[in-house]
């Protein structure tokens, strides 16, 4: 309201000198406070909404977020044309998957000194560095997708490979041998294909149609490197 009185005062001072073309615009801006009052009910409603999330129990909040993450996992496992993964992006799922995969790829602490398996930091950095590189590449190729959307999709699509890692660890509990390796190879190839198909289903639409191949190639390379890590993992 203080602004309104000020601008009204300016308008009064300007009226004896009508030469000012610039100040006539200021008098028009008097309409703004009215608009402001119109928007106030909306704001109060938003506040009510906010207070409702503040008052709810922590369990509800966590469950809601977990449900959102779980829904996105389902989208990755059964990829279909949908914008859910793109519209409400979050980085919780990618973080979980990344940490789980890195923890599973890390060898036992005693052996890690001696044999130096893929360390936690290495896997973690590889995943995020790769995802950022692919995102930059798709931006440079002219894709209309935001950085975090792309990171979200790429991160969620690691899910099949994390499952493959889990299966591989279970298979490795049985005695080693060529059959064992073949089983792991098949699982990893299947999950690699799944990851690529799922991520391209979400990402390919954001690219210009004639450049899809160029955008998909680094994605394949990225998942290939991860699946190679998963396949070559052997507990010592």
């Amino acid at each position: 309201m203080a602004e309104a009185t000020e601008s009204a005062g300016d308008g009064g001072a300007a009226s004896p000198r009508p030469l000012f073309a610039g100040l006539s615009d200021i008098t028009i801006s008097q309409d703004i406070p009215i608009e402001g009052e119109i928007t106030i009910p909306m704001r109060s409603r938003i506040r009510e909404f906010d207070s409702s999330t503040l008052n709810e129990s922590v369990q509800n909040t966590i469950m809601r977020d977990l449900k959102a993450v779980g829904k996105k996992f389902m989208h990755v496992l059964y990829p279909r044309k949908s914008n859910t993964l793109l519209r409400d992006w979050d980085l919780w799922g990618p973080l979980f998957l990344c940490v789980i995969l890195a923890l599973m790829l890390q060898r036992d602490a005693v052996d890690s000194e001696k044999y130096g398996g893929p360390q936690f930091a290495e896997v973690f950095v590889t995943l995020w560095f790769g995802a950022v590189t692919i995102t930059l590449n798709s931006k440079l190729l002219g894709g209309n997708i935001s950085v975090f959307q792309s990171l979200c999709v790429l991160g969620y699509c690691i899910l099949p490979l994390t499952v493959a890692m889990l299966i591989c660890r279970l298979v490795l509990l049985v005695e080693l041998g060529p059959v064992n390796f073949l089983v792991r190879l098949l699982v990893v190839i299947l999950m690699f294909a799944w990851s690529v198909v799922a991520s391209t289903a979400f990402l390919a639409d954001s690219q210009p149609p004639n450049r899809k191949t160029l955008a998909v190639y680094p994605v394949c390379l990225f998942y290939f490197v991860i699946s190679w890590m998963v396949l070559t993992f052997t507990p010592q």
Binding site: G116, P118, Q119, E122, W228, T234
Partner: peptide, 17 residues
């Protein structure tokens, strides 16, 4: 990376990537 991994795990993986 592929070549290094096939050459078994004796290489320090931390420096591999």
């Amino acid at each position: 990376l592929h070549g290094m991994k096939t050459s078994d795990t004796i290489i320090r993986e931390g420096t591999l990537m």
